[in-house]
């Protein structure tokens, strides 16, 4: 992959490795979900976020040797992602739902500030999922099965789309509140 960047080998050919080492791979894989969510916060659409993540990953892999072990992987990768988001927004400016630049920059700043809390929330989520009523859990699983959305689920179930949107919305809110409550409860004890 490094071949695609002909300018770089000139800098320090001798010390460059040809493939990322194990630690890098681990950092990379561990950061995937967080990176995805970081992107999602700014583009708000799952498919867009996935596409941008793919683009970002390509760059990350091609520039792996620029990353210095011991520094924050996420900070490094986040910069790449931010740039990719920008590129994507340029490209899709026409015909897509758009938030203002101000909105994006405020949200981007906040998401970094909030990253610890968001991480805790992700951990609490699985417990909240377990506590859902069985029917609700099945519905939410159906909604998030790969390639699905509320509309398609409604078609499979033969239910009116609005009622499915409502159910899914209710369950998401239940989860959201449950996570918030759990975090508050944990915060009280520490």
């Amino acid at each position: 992959m490094t071949e695609s960047h002909p300018t770089e080998p000139a800098e320090d050919v001798g010390s460059l490795e040809q493939v990322p080492n194990a630690e890098f791979v681990q950092l990379f894989t561990k950061s995937q979900r967080r990176l995805f969510l970081f992107i999602l916060a700014q583009v708000s659409n799952l498919a867009d976020a996935e596409e941008i993540l793919q683009d970002t990953n390509v760059i990350i892999w091609s520039k792996f040797h620029q990353f210095q072990l011991g520094t924050s992987f996420f900070a490094w990768a986040g910069k790449i992602a931010t740039y990719e988001i920008l590129k994507y927004r340029e490209k899709k400016r026409v015909g897509r739902l758009q938030f203002s630049d101000e909105f994006i920059s405020r949200v981007a700043a906040e998401v970094i500030e909030l990253s610890d809390e968001l991480e805790q929330r992700r951990e609490a989520l699985s417990e909240c999922l377990r506590r859902l009523k069985v029917d609700d859990r099945e519905l939410i699983q159906a909604r998030y099965a790969p390639g699905e959305n509320g509309l398609k689920v409604a078609e499979h179930l033969g239910r009116p789309a609005n009622s499915v949107y409502q159910s899914i919305g209710r369950i998401r809110k239940v989860l959201f509140d449950c996570v918030t409550r759990r975090l508050t409860a944990t915060a009280r004890t520490t």
């Binding site: 969510l37 916060a41 799952l46 976020a49 909030l114 989520l125 998401r172 959201f176």
Partner: peptide
């Protein structure tokens, strides 16, 4: 942010 994060996490996890 938290809501989108939840939405994204559900998507990612499944």
């Amino acid at each position: 942010l938290a809501y989108l994060d939840l939405h994204g996490t559900l998507h990612w996890n499944t």
